[in-house]
Each structure stands twice: as structure tokens, then as C-alpha cells.
Amino acid sequence: MAAGGDHGSPDSYRSPLASRYASPEMCFVFSDRYKFRTWRQLWLWLAEAEQTLGLPITDEQIQEMKSNLENIDFKMAAEEEKRLRHDVMAHVHTFGHCCPKAAGIIHLGATSCYVGDNTDLIILRNALDLLLPKLARVISRLADFAKERASLPTLGFTHFQPAQLTTVGKRCCLWIQDLCMDLQNLKRVRDDLRFRGVKGTTGTQASFLQLFEGDDHKVEQLDKMVTEKAGFKRAFIITGQTYTRKVDIEVLSVLASLGASVHKICTDIRLLANLKEMEEPFEKQQIGSSAMPYKRNPMRSERCCSLARHLMTLVMDPLQTASVQWFERTLDDSANRRICLAEAFLTADTILNTLQNISEGLVVYPKVIERRIRQELPFMATENIIMAMVKAGGSRQDCHEKIRVLSQQAASVVKQEGGDNDLIERIQVDAYFSPIHSQLDHLLDPSSFTGRASQQVQRFLEEEVYPLLKPYESVMKVKAELCL
């Protein structure tokens, strides 16, 4: 049975990233139509530049190519590739079939990587351009969430054990800070992308030097003109047959890092959902379990974690691919890159769409948070109580021993009897502590235990987050809708 299948058929496997999760716009960027249309555009740009620099290419040939950029006979191309065992030459023939007058000058002087690699770089750039505003929107939604809850005390956790208090907004800023680093890295790697350009079979530009009869300047002009037509500021000066596969490492490393950030955020949300302090959106008709109707599973956060793990592992592909590119190139890269580049971007696209949807509907339960604080705060307040007693004339050592005994009794009630923490009640009825009984409410005010959390939130948002989001103001209103 021949390899390949009808990918629109229910009898043929289709990647869930495309069929179930990723956005239509990201799927289109990695589609065959987008790819092969870009090949034709690159052939047109090459012909236009070659004509401008004096090669015998007519206006009629150029116009014929322009008129057929979208006229792609995919069936013919597939048949040609089956016959020739070469995808680029299959599309040269297919393009030439609908451009008979231009057929002889299509791909003039070029090698397969002229269309293959340059198209990949265009796709990487455009895919990054799709991700950047999506990530900015996630940051914006979380920034709104953090600002609104900047002063809401909550129990902090280290080692997932109760620690000092923080605020809900401050905790959210930990998430935002990681995503801001990801946004900066995505922008950097996007701006650092260079075009492969017009380089020939081993990167020496020998074929173009021959076409222009040894004119170095025209060869350099050709490279520059096509690079500018493709919208790049610069091209690699040095290439082998391909652009260095280190570029793929750079791009997928940034995406993998984004995956790590999203995994951490969504894990926190899942843990908070278990504590009943916070939940992701839950639709009115949504079913959490087929057997347990009360369940409210954090399905979206779980999906993000599941896909983020996949995204983090994909960076190993370009690392290994770059390491086995012998001399000017081997074909070890080809099949692998067809999979890992598309999957990385479709996965990143999915987790950003999902995280935006989550961040637009996060639900906080202040009463649950308050109750958990009441359970733990008495123990945390013991040092403040000791200091207040010393100020009232008591002995630190005597007070410490009193607190120690009462704390152990209260802990026994919590752990052995399943009761509430009654340390404060014990202190309130103990005559030894009568000098500070009137101060206990103040000493137990949760806001006095959150330090500068709310001020940190305000400063972080104003100095770091809002300036970073400013270039994306025009796209901030787009909502994230999930079908599944």
C-alpha cells in the first residue's frame, strides 16, 4: 500500500493539533497551500530580480507567473513527485505547466533550498508574528487579574506546605514575570531571523556568478533584492546548502521555554482548584465526569500541561538535527523538520489560546482563602504575639514557653481530632496574655502579614508589564474561544 493518505478522510490519521486544537490561522501558515504558494512567490521574486539585473526574462513571463501564483494543481504535483521522487522539481514542473512561456526560467540558477529553506524562514517569521500578540493578550488578562487582587491576602506555599502570606495578585505576578520573559525572547528570536537568500547549491553562489558572467556586484544585488522582497532586513552571508540548523534550535528553545512557563502556571491553577481557592472557567453544560456528576475538573489547565510537556520535548529534535548536518548538509534534517517545526508552533498556539481562555474567566473564592488563612495564621502570628507581650512588660522566655504549650495543644486538636485551630481562643482565655487581649485582632490582621506584596504588584505592572504590552494595544480586544 502506498504511503500517505487522504487526510480529510475519517479513515486516515490526522494530527489532533490540526484537527482538534490549533487555530485556523496557525494551521494555514503550515498548510501545503501556504507552503507551495510561497515557493511560487519566491520563484517570481527571483525572476523579477534577475530581470532587473539584466537576464533575458520578459515582462510577459513575469506576468504569467504572477497570474498563476494561486493556480496550484495539487493532484498534478503529487503525481509528479511520485514520478520524480523530488518535491521541488515536482512543483517546478507543475508551475511550468500553467506558465508555459515562463517554464524555462522558473528556478533559474537556484537549488531546492532556495524555495525550501527560504519558505521555512518566512513561515517561522509569520508563525512567530501570530504567537506574539496571543502571548501579549494572556499577559494582559493576567495583569488585569493581578491588579484587581493585588491586596487580597492568601496563604503562600513553599514545598506545598503553608508559608508566609502573600497576595493573590502577587502570586499571579510570578506567572506574568515568566511570560514577559517569554514574550521578550519570542520577539528577540523573531527579529534575529535572517533570510537564507540566493546562495546556490553549497552556499557559494557559483551558479549565479556564472549567470551574471562573473559580476560579483550583481550577485550581491540579486541576494539583497530577493531578501528585501521577502520582507527581511538581512540575509546570511555564510550558508551551506541550507541555512544553519542552529536557527531551528533557537526558535524551538524559546517555544519550549514558553511551554515550561505555561505548565507551571496551569499546575498552580490545578492545585488551587483542589484547594477550592480558584477555578478555571466551567461552562453551564460542561460535564466533569461521566460517573461523578459533582466533579469540576480543571480540564483546560490539564490540557495545557499535557501539550506543554510535548512542546518542551520537541527542542531535542533540532538539537540532534543540527549535530548531524555533515559538511554542507545531509538530508537527516528533512523529514524531522517537516514534523517538529509545525508541531512546535501548533502546540504553542494551542496552549496560548487555551491559557487566554482560562485567564479571561478565572474565578476566585475569597471566603475559602480566608478560612485557610484562619487555619494557619495563628501559628504564624506567634512571633508577633511574643513581641507584643514583651512590649507590655512580659518575659520573652516565659511567653515563648506559654505559646509553645498552647500551640501544641491547638495542633493536637487540628491533627488528632480534625478540629479547627483554636490557638487564639486559648490565648484569649489565658490570664497571662490579658495585657494584649485587646491587640489580638490587630495582630491577626492578614494584611499585616503580606509585606509589600501589593506595592510590588503595582510597581511591576507599571514599570515592566504595561510598557512591554504597549506595541500590542491594537490587538488586545480579541477574545479566545474554545470549541473543545
Score class of each variant (00 low, 15 high):
residue 2 A to Y: 15
residue 3 A to L: 10
residue 3 A to Y: 15
residue 5 G to A: 10
residue 8 G to I: 15
residue 10 P to I: 15
residue 11 D to M: 09
residue 19 S to M: 05
residue 21 Y to V: 01
residue 28 F to V: 06
residue 33 R to F: 07
residue 36 F to M: 14
residue 38 T to W: 04
residue 39 W to L: 04
residue 44 L to K: 06
residue 47 A to P: 04
residue 49 A to C: 09
residue 50 E to C: 08
residue 51 Q to M: 09
residue 51 Q to I: 07
residue 54 G to T: 04
residue 56 P to W: 07
residue 57 I to N: 03
residue 57 I to Q: 02
residue 58 T to I: 13
residue 58 T to F: 10
residue 58 T to L: 11
residue 61 Q to E: 09
residue 61 Q to K: 07
residue 61 Q to S: 08
residue 62 I to S: 04
residue 63 Q to N: 10
residue 64 E to G: 09
residue 67 S to L: 12
residue 69 L to V: 09
residue 70 E to L: 10
residue 73 D to R: 07
residue 73 D to M: 05
residue 74 F to V: 15
residue 77 A to I: 15
residue 80 E to S: 13
residue 80 E to W: 06
residue 81 E to S: 04
residue 86 H to F: 00
residue 88 V to R: 00
residue 90 A to S: 09
residue 93 H to A: 14
residue 96 G to F: 06
residue 100 P to T: 10
residue 104 G to H: 10
residue 105 I to D: 06
residue 106 I to P: 00
residue 115 V to R: 01
residue 115 V to C: 10
residue 116 G to R: 02
residue 116 G to A: 14
residue 120 D to K: 06
residue 121 L to H: 04
residue 133 P to L: 14
residue 135 L to N: 08
residue 135 L to P: 07
residue 137 R to T: 15
residue 139 I to T: 10
residue 141 R to W: 13
residue 142 L to Y: 07
residue 144 D to R: 15
residue 144 D to M: 15
residue 145 F to E: 10
residue 145 F to V: 07
residue 149 R to T: 12
residue 154 T to N: 05
residue 155 L to M: 04
residue 160 F to W: 04
residue 166 T to R: 00
residue 168 V to P: 05
residue 169 G to S: 04
residue 171 R to L: 02
residue 171 R to Y: 00
residue 172 C to A: 08
residue 172 C to E: 03
residue 172 C to N: 06
residue 177 Q to Y: 14
residue 178 D to L: 00
residue 182 D to L: 04
residue 184 Q to I: 14
residue 186 L to E: 04
residue 186 L to V: 11
residue 190 R to D: 06
residue 192 D to P: 03
residue 193 L to C: 10
residue 196 R to G: 09
residue 198 V to A: 12
residue 198 V to C: 15
residue 199 K to A: 13
residue 199 K to D: 01
residue 200 G to D: 00
residue 202 T to W: 01
residue 202 T to P: 01
residue 203 G to S: 02
residue 205 Q to F: 00
residue 209 L to Y: 11
residue 213 E to M: 13
residue 214 G to N: 13
residue 216 D to H: 10
residue 217 H to R: 12
residue 222 L to C: 11
residue 224 K to L: 12
residue 224 K to S: 10
residue 225 M to G: 08
residue 225 M to H: 11
residue 229 K to A: 07
residue 234 R to L: 10
residue 234 R to T: 11
residue 236 F to R: 05
residue 237 I to W: 06
residue 242 T to H: 05
residue 242 T to E: 08
residue 242 T to Y: 04
residue 242 T to D: 06
residue 245 R to K: 07
residue 248 D to A: 00
residue 248 D to W: 02
residue 250 E to I: 15
residue 251 V to W: 07
residue 253 S to G: 12
residue 255 L to K: 03
residue 256 A to M: 11
residue 264 K to E: 02
residue 266 C to D: 05
residue 267 T to K: 03
residue 272 L to N: 05
residue 274 N to C: 12
residue 274 N to P: 05
residue 276 K to C: 04
residue 276 K to Q: 05
residue 277 E to Q: 05
residue 277 E to K: 01
residue 277 E to P: 01
residue 282 F to V: 06
residue 283 E to D: 14
residue 284 K to G: 14
residue 284 K to P: 07
residue 285 Q to M: 14
residue 286 Q to S: 01
residue 289 S to M: 03
residue 289 S to R: 00
residue 289 S to G: 01
residue 299 M to L: 03
residue 304 C to A: 15
residue 306 S to N: 00
residue 306 S to D: 02
residue 306 S to T: 01
residue 306 S to K: 02
residue 310 H to D: 02
residue 312 M to P: 04
residue 313 T to K: 04
residue 314 L to I: 13
residue 315 V to C: 11
residue 316 M to V: 10
residue 317 D to M: 12
residue 320 Q to K: 04
residue 322 A to W: 12
residue 327 F to Y: 12
residue 327 F to Q: 09
residue 331 L to Q: 03
residue 334 S to F: 01
residue 335 A to L: 03
residue 336 N to E: 03
residue 336 N to R: 01
residue 338 R to N: 00
residue 347 T to Y: 08
residue 347 T to S: 12
residue 351 I to Q: 03
residue 353 N to C: 13
residue 357 N to Y: 07
residue 361 G to P: 06
residue 362 L to F: 12
residue 366 P to H: 08
residue 367 K to S: 10
residue 372 R to G: 04
residue 377 L to R: 02
residue 377 L to T: 00
residue 379 F to G: 02
residue 380 M to N: 08
residue 380 M to R: 02
residue 381 A to D: 08
residue 386 I to S: 05
residue 387 M to Q: 13
residue 388 A to F: 02
residue 389 M to I: 07
residue 390 V to R: 01
residue 394 G to F: 10
residue 395 S to P: 04
residue 397 Q to R: 05
residue 398 D to C: 11
residue 401 E to K: 14
residue 404 R to T: 06
residue 407 S to W: 00
residue 409 Q to C: 09
residue 410 A to K: 07
residue 410 A to L: 05
residue 411 A to I: 07
residue 414 V to W: 04
residue 421 N to D: 05
residue 424 I to R: 13
residue 425 E to H: 15
residue 435 P to F: 05
residue 436 I to Q: 02
residue 436 I to G: 03
residue 438 S to E: 14
residue 439 Q to M: 11
residue 439 Q to H: 07
residue 440 L to S: 05
residue 442 H to Y: 11
residue 442 H to G: 12
residue 445 D to C: 12
residue 451 G to Q: 04
residue 459 R to K: 11
residue 460 F to C: 06
residue 464 E to R: 04
residue 466 Y to V: 12
residue 468 L to M: 13
residue 471 P to M: 15
residue 471 P to S: 15
residue 474 S to N: 11
residue 479 K to R: 12
residue 480 A to R: 13
residue 481 E to H: 11
residue 482 L to W: 08
residue 483 C to H: 14
residue 484 L to R: 15
